[in-house]
Nucleic acid binder design. Structure first.
Length: 281
DNA sequence: CACCATGTTCCTTG
DNA sequence: CCAAGGAACATGGT
């Protein structure tokens, strides 16, 4: 589910549901997601703490907590399949529930089918992140300067969270398609003008995805109402997903600009989609 | 059974 | 020490 836009939408959704709420008890059903925080430390630290604010940094969720005079941060990441939501306490827990916080009347659930995500007190990974896409210090010039240091394909570099925080595999392909740059281009051969174009397209595509509720639309209408949500197809709009994405997952289908079949290649063990005609160089 | 999947980290190689 | 490539993690869908 998550690249930056999905996390942003989730944070905006959860913020009013969580801020001001106190964690009464903690249930850890899969200790792995806490790594490297030990279960005992995790529970002891969080029980009795109040969630003050919720923020996003790259693809991470930052929970600002307060307990007595102490303030600290809980770091969340959804990996590939993680979900977080607030539900009534009587609601059944999903099969792959990893952590549950009892918030009094409601419960906060972190569920993750593949358990690649994290909910931890260790902030190290978030500290390594590069600038947010909208950081004013991030310019065509600074971006090119960073790209110059690498001969990796530019598509692979876009996934480097220390370069820019938040771009994932879907939007990396989308950005290069919009900019007309081949995903195979060596990072150090991107010009300042092209970097400027990429930056504009990065901001545009992420903004658009956030605006429309994310790549795969958020559906808050869940049978059970009360804030339970899930990511899935919007009812009655079968191809909503593809209308938003111009090349990703369109291998073999005609390019929306020139009708040339979209190609799928593998870079750094991840799929890349591009139009061999519109993205010649 | 084979291959694919929105992500990150660790290990190896050069 | 660094850059780059690939495997690992764990589960499910097609």
């Amino acid at each position: 589910m998550p690249e930056l836009p999905e996390v942003e939408v989730l944070v905006r959704h959860l913020r009013p549901l969580l801020s001001g709420r106190k964690i009464r008890s903690v249930s850890v059903r899969r200790a792995k997601v806490l790594h490297p925080t030990p279960v005992a430390t995790f529970s002891k630290t969080l029980i009795g703490a109040t969630i003050q604010e919720l923020r996003r940094r790259g693809k991470y969720l930052l929970f600002d907590l307060k307990k007595g005079r102490g303030r600290f941060v809980l770091l969340g990441h959804l990996g590939m399949t993680g979900r977080m939501f607030v539900a009534a306490k009587k609601e059944a827990l999903p099969k792959h529930t990893a952590v549950v916080f009892d918030l009094g009347g409601k419960q906060f659930i972190y569920e993750d089918t593949r358990y690649f995500g994290r909910l931890t007190l260790d902030l190290t990974s978030a500290e390594q992140l590069g600038p947010e896409p909208w950081d004013e210090a991030l310019t065509a010039e600074t971006l090119v300067r960073e790209l110059k240091k690498s001969r990796q394909p530019v598509k692979v570099k876009l996934l480097d969270q220390t370069l820019i925080a938040g771009i994932g595999n879907i939007y990396a392909s989308e950005v290069l398609f919009r900019t007309g740059i081949s995903p195979r281009r060596a990072a150090n051969r991107v010009t300042v003008a092209e970097a400027g174009g990429m930056l504009t397209n990065i901001r545009d595509v992420l903004n658009e995805a956030i605006a429309c509720g994310s790549t795969i639309p958020l559906n808050f209408t869940g049978r059970k109402s009360d804030g339970l949500f899930y990511f899935g197809q919007a009812p009655g709009t079968p191809d909503y997903y593809e209308e938003r994405l111009r090349v990703y997952d369109r291998a073999g289908k005609p390019c929306i600009h020139c009708q040339t079949p979209v190609k799928r290649i593998v870079q750094a063990a991840r799929s890349t989609f591009f139009c061999p005609q519109c993205q010649k160089k």
